[in-house]
Design a protein around this nucleic acid. Structure first.
Lengths: 181, 181
DNA sequence: CCTCGACCTGTCCGCGTAGACATGTCAAGA
DNA sequence: TCTTGACATGTCTACGCGGACAGGTCGAGG
């Protein structure tokens, strides 16, 4: 149950409501790491409160309840972060498509890989300015902005996939020339 | 329902039994892309047969049934491969941990990142010889071995994460020196 | 004053999934 | 001949999860 640990990790940054957490999952964490809708988040927060890992910190207008980590919650988060299982849970549609590229006809595969490469380039050009702006504001000694490490991960991820797509195109071309002939 | 498409993709490589497919998921596809146990695979194959995407190709000893793709199955696979949704399903515990590194105390974060870097290095050194052996046997014009693209993906993936971990360590060190002073 | 849109919390249902349970066959080697 | 281990197929149950359903509050602007 990694949703619980995702929530613990997000709450470690400060108290938040179910609504806040739901919006957090709409951002990069939901795009690269783990998805969750509010319909899973509210019940899970309730269970975590029952288990003593979080407490209701304060109640605001519109029935807003912010949750805060307890010591138990902190301990559990740390335990989970430092204890890596042999085989982690992975379920990634994009990677699955990459594994199955070779099931396509060569022309289809080529078109697909070209699409992937172009998409990665576009994402890289979106991401890089944001990261560089972050860095420009950053002075040595400041804490890193939350998400800076994640952003860097995303950037390097796209660069790796881009390189892979180009390499694959080259190999495919070598194995079975089609555009030429 | 990506399990269905994973199965279609694997069957595109040739007929296989539920047992064969289960073992395929124990390999790299289950490690990087999508996991599935036999308890999901057998019912799904039955449903796919009902939907006309696969047929029982031949029956062997011990009740073995090999399934083969139909034209419908091929069409559906191709449709899924070429049609990329805006937001793909992702659920990756490892990436989640990376997103939450900053929730740890600096010393813990540093230890964790060092562990990640070391782990990546080890995997790279496992993978690279296998890929190079593949390449040595490969002559231009031969079809690529199934899994060669996937292996290259894994290799580049580990290299990217390795680079990210080193970069993060450096940034963390700059932001909050601990080993020194 | 009123309306609209963002805020905010929840439940319900059907399907996907993991792990345990159940059953039986065949081949190789002791 | 017997035992062991790989081969092989299935079901069952409890839980995770996404999308729809449901209801209510507050602030800003017309």
């Amino acid at each position: 149950m990694s949703l619980r640990h995702a929530l613990l990790g997000l709450l470690a940054d400060g108290p938040a409501s179910g609504y806040d957490l739901t919006r957090a999952f709409d951002g990069s964490i939901g795009r690269y790491a783990w998805q969750a809708g509010h319909s899973r988040i509210y019940p899970e927060l309730a269970k975590m409160a029952e288990a003593g890992q979080v407490v209701v910190d304060e109640t605001g207008p519109r029935g807003r309840k912010t949750y805060a980590l307890t010591d138990d919650g902190h301990t559990e988060l740390r335990r989970w972060m430092l204890h890596w299982p042999e085989q982690a849970n992975v379920r990634d549609e994009t990677v699955l498509r990459m594994f199955l590229v070779q099931s396509l006809e060569p022309e289809d595969a080529r078109r697909l890989l070209e699409g992937i490469a172009a998409h990665c380039l576009a994402e890289i050009e979106n991401l890089r300015p944001v990261m560089e702006a972050d860095d420009a504001e950053h002075r040595p000694g400041d804490p890193l902005p939350f998400g800076r490490l994640a952003g860097e991960y995303g950037l390097r991820q796209y660069e790796a996939v881009h390189g892979w797509a180009l390499w694959s195109l080259e190999r495919l071309g070598a194995a079975e020339p089609a555009g030429t002939s």
